[in-house]
C-alpha cells in the first residue's frame, strides 16, 4: 500500500512497543480516596476569604467534617473578622488567635485543633489581582515548608458550586514521593461523577538538558520530546492504572494527558474557567518538587491542593 522508509517503520514499531510495554504494570489496586475530617480556614481579611469559607462549608456538607476559622492576620484589626465570615453558618468554631506571625498562628492552630486540611488565601494578606502570578507570598512558602497536612490555596475569589470540584487536575512532572498521597487527596476531593485528569508534564528545561546530555554521549541518538513524553507515560503507567481503577470504584471520570509545558499551560486556562482544583504532591526533600509546586500555585487562578510528604 505505501512505502514507509525503514527509519519510519523502526520509529513506529518502537513507539508501539513502548505503548504495549506500558501495559506491563502488574497488580494495581485502586486508591483509598482521602477526605478531610477537620478543616481549618485561615482568614486574612482579603477578598479570597469568602471563597475559602464557602469551599470549606461545601466540603463540610459533603463529608460531614468539622470546620473552624482562624483570623490569622499579623495584627488584630479589631473588626471581628471571623464573626463576619461565619455569619449565617452553623457549628463553625472560631479559634482563639495564637501569637506570632501569620504562618506561626496558622501552624500553631492547625496543630492544637488537630485539623487535617488547611484552606487559606494566596497570596496571603493581598489581593490576587494585585500580585497575580508574580508571587505566592511568604506565608504560603513557609507553610509549604513546614505544614504537615495538605492545604488548599485559594487564588482568585469565586462562588463555588454546591458540589465543588467537578474537575480536578492532578499534575506530575517526574518521580514524586508524595504522588500517591496527592492522588488520594485528588480522588477524595472530586465531586461525585466529576472528572479527574492526570496531567504528566514534560518541562522544557528538563527536555533540553536530557537532549543535550544524550547528544553529548552519542551524536547518532535522535532524541525528541515525543520520546520523553512516552517515557514519562511509561514511568507513570502504574499510577495511571491505579487512578483508572479508583475512578471505576468511586464513580468519577478519569483521563490521562501527557503534554509539554506550553500545552499544559494552554489547558490550564480552560480548566480555570470551570474553577477546577489543581492537585500537586510536594516531596519536601526534593528541590525540583518545591519549584514545581510553587510554580503551579503562582500560575493558577483556581484553587490548588498541595499534599506534602
Amino acid at each position: 500500500m505505501y512505502d514507509p522508509s525503514e527509519r519510519k517503520i523502526d520509529r513506529d514499531v518502537e513507539e508501539s512497543m513502548r505503548l504495549f510495554q506500558r501495559s506491563q504494570v502488574g497488580e494495581a489496586a485502586p486508591l483509598a480516596p482521602l477526605q478531610p475530617k477537620r478543616v481549618l480556614v485561615a482568614a486574612d481579611g482579603s477578598s479570597q476569604d469568602a471563597t475559602s469559607i464557602a469551599v470549606a462549608d461545601r466540603l463540610r456538607k459533603r463529608f460531614g467534617c468539622e470546620l473552624a476559622v482562624l483570623d490569622a492576620r499579623d495584627s488584630a484589626a479589631g473588626d471581628d473578622l471571623t464573626n463576619k465570615l461565619t455569619a449565617g453558618l452553623q457549628d463553625v468554631e472560631q479559634l482563639t488567635k495564637p501569637s506570632g506571625e501569620s504562618f506561626e498562628q496558622i501552624l500553631s492552630a492547625a496543630e492544637s485543633w488537630k485539623c487535617d486540611l488547611l484552606i487559606l488565601p494566596c497570596p496571603y494578606g493581598r489581593d490576587f489581582e494585585k500580585v497575580g502570578a508574580d508571587s505566592a507570598g511568604t506565608v504560603l512558602d513557609v507553610l509549604l515548608a513546614r505544614s504537615p497536612i495538605p492545604l488548599i490555596a485559594i487564588r482568585r475569589p469565586f462562588e463555588p458550586e454546591a458540589a465543588p470540584f467537578q474537575r480536578v487536575v492532578f499534575s506530575l512532572w517526574r518521580e514524586n514521593e508524595a504522588a500517591v498521597l496527592a492522588a488520594s487527596w485528588a480522588a477524595g476531593m472530586i465531586a461525585p461523577g466529576g472528572h479527574l485528569r492526570l496531567e504528566l508534564v514534560l518541562e522544557e528545561e528538563f527536555y533540553e538538558n536530557i537532549r543535550d546530555v544524550m547528544g553529548a554521549l552519542d551524536e547518532s541518538i535522535k532524541f525528541d520530546a515525543e520520546k520523553l513524553c512516552n517515557a514519562l507515560a511509561a514511568s507513570h503507567a502504574h499510577m495511571h492504572r491505579t487512578l483508572q481503577k479508583t475512578a471505576t470504584a468511586h464513580n468519577f471520570v478519569y483521563e490521562l494527558t501527557v503534554c509539554r509545558e506550553a500545552e499544559a499551560h494552554e489547558m490550564d486556562v480552560t480548566e480555570e474557567a470551570s474553577h477546577a482544583l489543581f492537585a500537586v504532591g510536594l516531596e519536601r526533600s526534593d528541590h525540583a518538587s518545591h519549584g514545581h509546586v510553587q510554580d503551579r500555585v503562582r500560575r493558577a487562578a483556581s484553587p490548588v491542593l498541595v499534599a506534602p510528604r
Partner: peptide, 14 residues
C-alpha cells in the same frame, strides 16, 4: 497477567 490492557487507555471516553 503482568500486562493490563486498561493501562493502555488514556481516556475511556475517547
Amino acid at each position: 497477567a503482568e500486562f493490563d490492557p486498561w493501562a493502555l487507555v488514556e481516556s475511556r471516553w475517547v
